[in-house]
Design a protein around this nucleic acid. Structure first.
Lengths: 128, 128
DNA sequence: ATATATATTGGAGTATACTCCATGTCAAGA
DNA sequence: TCTTGACATGGAGTATACTCCAATATATAT
């Protein structure tokens, strides 16, 4: 008795609850070429398990300030299949460099801010 | 013989070169209430040494994703004088908390990204 | 005196990333 | 059969942060 993979799928309504994104945003991401859900017989969007991972990855890229246009480039390669693995790796390595620079900047900013806070504390203390 | 402080000042053109911001951006920041340069007899903007430090601070806040509206709140207090020191310190402490959360998120993202990169590398290696 | 450079203002335009809305379709329940 | 709810599309509207432009003013150089 063969038992196919359960292949759980989600309507856009369910998918909004899973991802925390609004239906409008999901449709916007689709229009921008980030995600391509299947459609059912009534032309309704059908999201899969794989789409959850993909959206979560998109959200992480967005959290690190990657513009949609760039995420789209990655998405395009992804949907092209395994032949684009190297190209995608290159994009990820580029992003890795970017993100490490971001981290350095953030650390610099933390130092400056902590310094400023100390100056403020001293000024307030002195004034008493 | 008293000798006044040299009080170096800069035209908007010079100030663009110092700060790296365009004249339009500087005027925009002024319109948004971030900075208030003096004016000379011909109504031209006159930026001071202090404005350099202030712009540099603004840029650091911007680098850590603080919206102009929030920077404006700080600017307003700043231009009100020493009576607002505590309030400004509070804002800075809020921002400190925010920025530390950002750092944590960034570190999480780095872990995820490094992981993804390793998976890609393995997939490419395996395929050879 | 005139040309050039640098500045002024108000307001329009752009890019990004959504967000909202009007109108229409379809399936399932009362 | 009728209503309800969830979805579809196209297009308009919003917020943020600039960026550009036209018309005007002033100071300096020739």
């Amino acid at each position: 008795m063969s038992r196919g993979v359960s292949s759980v799928v989600y309507s856009i309504g369910t998918f909004t609850k899973i991802t925390g994104l609004s239906a409008d945003t999901l449709r916007y991401y689709e229009k921008e070429g980030l995600i391509f859900p299947e459609r059912d017989l009534n032309n309704r969007r059908v999201y899969s398990e794989k789409d959850i991972d993909w959206i979560e990855f998109i959200l992480r890229l967005k959290e690190t300030a990657m513009p949609i246009s760039q995420i789209k480039a990655y998405a395009r390669l992804r949907y092209e299949g395994d032949s684009t693995l190297e190209k995608r790796l290159d994009l990820l390595l580029d992003h890795q460099r970017f993100i490490y620079k971001e981290k350095e900047k953030l650390e610099q900013n933390i130092l400056h801010l902590n310094n400023k806070i100390n100056i403020y504390k001293e000024a307030i203390e002195e004034r008493r």
